[in-house]
Design a protein around this nucleic acid. Structure first.
Lengths: 191, 191
DNA sequence: TCCAAAACTATAATCGCTATGGATTCAGAT
DNA sequence: ATCTGAATCCATAGCGATTATAGTTTTGGA
């Protein structure tokens, strides 16, 4: 039974305290206006403990490990309705999640804005998405009868995973997302 | 007369001494095995001077400011032979330069390998490419009668500029580059 | 020749992050 | 209930990149 010890509960609790302290302080003073020492203080742990919980460093404090995103994407591709194209499945999946839907709690909206307007956080968010490139490429390859090392497949996966960073800062992110998927589907053309 | 003082000559000389010292030491001990203090010593300047010459930090030491790249790309798009498509012009431009051509001096080849195998340097190289996104988007928009803020144009510019990082590490970079340009031109399709 | 800008310097400080070594707490076996 | 090993936590010290400060030297031009 993996998830039922007091130990794991406390661990998750500390991790959440760190996340919340970081988000609160970042929102109040800006990302660069907060030191990891302040965050550790606010969460009432030592700096060493902070880094034990968040080995990827300061930027990772307000993110999870990105495993969920990877699972969604691969599942969206593999379990899509029959007859639906891979790109269509990915388009719907991304449109529903991430920075593209508008029915978010005010806190999440606020967090998204913080990420979009803070370069270090934007870059780390991109890194998390791109960490799923291999998995997504495998899923796409498997569904389209190509080799996962096929550069076309890898490039498509990469380009899809870059969409959040590319479209996230637009005035109408959803319209931007659709424009980019249209481009990936039909290409730029010979003009 | 912009470029003819002893001052500017000495400045360029110091900058090159830093570049060469950094490249030599990185090659010998690896990027993480070298401190900026060692590089400053090797170039016989103080640490403060090093950062005065290279405000972007350690990774920027072995790169120029990327202005050249931007000029090539924009020129390639704007001055292309009549009848040639924008993407074809970009394909040829990138294939001829950067990590894609094979007639390089051994030093440049060695430098390229160092960059490809060092994450921090790879990321900074990408950053330099992407810094040209705005300029490239404007050129593409101008040549295709679209608006420079059109998301399709911006996405295309971004995707083209990501090709070096995406294809640079492949066994056959040139083939990879062509595969990606084919994808951008024709799209993935509805399959 | 003289002056202001530019380049350089040493020094000290900040900040993110890691290493060490020891104390505490927990899970599971006896 | 107790023992034991692992996990967690902590204080401390330290490293490396980067910035700030303040003073010195060099250079270009009036």
């Amino acid at each position: 039974m993996p998830t039922t010890g007091r130990r794991e509960r406390k661990k998750a609790q500390t991790r959440r305290a760190l996340s919340e302290a970081a988000l609160r302080l970042f929102s109040e003073h800006g990302y660069d206006g907060v030191t990891v020492a302040q965050i550790a203080d606010e969460a009432d742990v030592s700096i060493a403990t902070l880094f034990a919980h968040v080995p990827d460093g300061k930027e990772a404090l307000i993110f999870d490990d990105g495993a969920e995103r990877r699972v969604w994407l691969v599942a969206a591709v593999r379990d899509r309705p029959s007859g639906q194209s891979v790109l269509e499945a990915l388009r719907r999946c991304m449109a529903a999640r991430g920075p593209f839907t508008d029915d978010l709690s005010p806190e999440l909206r606020h967090k998204r804005d913080l990420i979009v307007r803070t370069p270090a956080l934007r870059e780390y968010s991109r890194k998390l998405w791109i960490a799923g490139e291999g998995a997504l490429a495998e899923a796409i390859a498997s569904e389209s009868g190509r080799d996962p090392s096929d550069m076309t497949v890898r490039a498509l996966a990469r380009y899809v995973l870059e969409i959040p960073e590319l479209a996230g800062a637009e005035p109408d992110p959803l319209a931007a997302l659709n424009a980019i998927f249209d481009l990936l589907e039909a290409g730029w053309g010979g003009g």
